[in-house]
Amino acid sequence: MTEYKLVVVGAGGVGKSALTIQLIQNHFVDEYDPTIEDSYRKQVVIDGETCLLDILDTAGQEEYSAMRDQYMRTGEGFLCVFAINNTKSFEDIHHYREQIKRVKDSEDVPMVLVGNKCDLPSRTVDTKQAQDLARSYGIPFIETSAKTRQGVDDAFYTLVREIRKHKEKMSKDGKKKKKKSKTKCVIM
Rank of each mutant, 00 (worst) to 15 (best):
I142L: 07
D173S: 10
K176I: 03
A146S: 08
S181A: 10
S136L: 09
K169V: 09
K172A: 13
K180C: 15
G174W: 00
V186A: 15
A146F: 00
G174H: 00
T127K: 07
H166N: 12
A155Y: 01
K165T: 12
Y157H: 14
K128Y: 07
V160Q: 05
P140W: 00
Y137I: 14
D126R: 03
E162F: 01
G138R: 02
M170E: 07
G151S: 10
Q150N: 12
T144E: 03
C185M: 14
D154A: 09
Q131A: 13
V160K: 06
Q131N: 07
T183I: 01
A146Y: 00
V125L: 01
E143Y: 03
K176R: 09
S145T: 04
S145E: 12
V186G: 15
K177L: 14
A155S: 03
F141T: 02
G174K: 04
K177D: 15
H166Y: 11
E162R: 03
A134S: 06
A130E: 07
A155K: 00
R149L: 09
K128C: 10
T144H: 01
M188W: 10
T183Y: 03
L159I: 11
L159R: 00
M188C: 14
A134F: 04
F156Q: 00
I142S: 01
V186Y: 09
E143S: 08
Y157M: 13
F156G: 00
G151I: 11
M188V: 03
E162G: 04
Q129Y: 09
D173I: 01
R135Y: 11
L133F: 09
E162A: 06
A134R: 02
D153S: 12
R149S: 07
M188E: 15
V160W: 02
Y137W: 11
R164A: 11
K178W: 06
K165Y: 02
T148S: 13
F156A: 02
T158V: 04
R161P: 00
T158F: 05
K172I: 15
K128T: 13
Q129S: 12
L133N: 03
Q131G: 07
A155R: 00
L133S: 04
T127D: 12
T158N: 07
L159H: 00
H166M: 14
I139F: 04
R135C: 08
I142R: 04
D126M: 05
A134T: 02
E162D: 04
V186H: 13
M188D: 15
K184W: 00
L159G: 00
K184A: 12
K172V: 12
V125W: 01
T127S: 13
T158S: 10
D154L: 08
K184G: 10
T158K: 06
I142Q: 03
Q129I: 11
K128F: 09
Y137Q: 05
K180L: 14
K178S: 11
F156V: 13
S181E: 15
G151K: 13
T158P: 01
H166C: 06
K178C: 11
V152Y: 13
K128R: 10
A130Y: 15
C185A: 13
L133G: 02
K128Q: 14
K167Y: 03
D154E: 14
C185L: 04
T127R: 07
D132M: 05
K176C: 12
V125S: 01
Q150A: 13
D173A: 05
E168D: 08
L133V: 07
H166Q: 08
K167W: 01
Q131K: 12
R149I: 03
R135S: 09
V186I: 04
G151P: 07
A130I: 15
M188L: 06
V125D: 01
D154I: 05
K169T: 09
R164W: 07
A155C: 10
T127E: 12
K172Y: 12
A130R: 02
Q129R: 12
T144I: 15
D173T: 08
K178G: 11
F141G: 01
R135D: 14
T127F: 11
L159C: 07
V152T: 09
V160G: 02
E168R: 07
K172G: 10
K175G: 13
E162I: 03
R135M: 12
D153L: 13
I187R: 10
E162N: 07
A130T: 08
K177A: 11
G151H: 13
D132C: 04
I142A: 01
D154G: 06
S181R: 05
K167Q: 08
K182W: 01
Y157K: 14
F156Y: 06
D126C: 08
K167H: 08
Q131M: 09
K176D: 15
K169M: 10
I139N: 02
A134V: 03
K177Y: 04
K178E: 14
D132K: 08
C185S: 15
A134D: 02
K178F: 06
K172R: 06
E168V: 08
K165V: 03
D132E: 13
Q131T: 07
R149N: 14
Q150E: 12
K179V: 13
S136M: 08
I139L: 05
D153K: 12
T127Q: 08
D132S: 06
D153N: 11
V125G: 02
L133D: 04
K167I: 02
V125N: 01
S181G: 07
T127I: 12
A155N: 00
G151T: 12
S136Q: 13
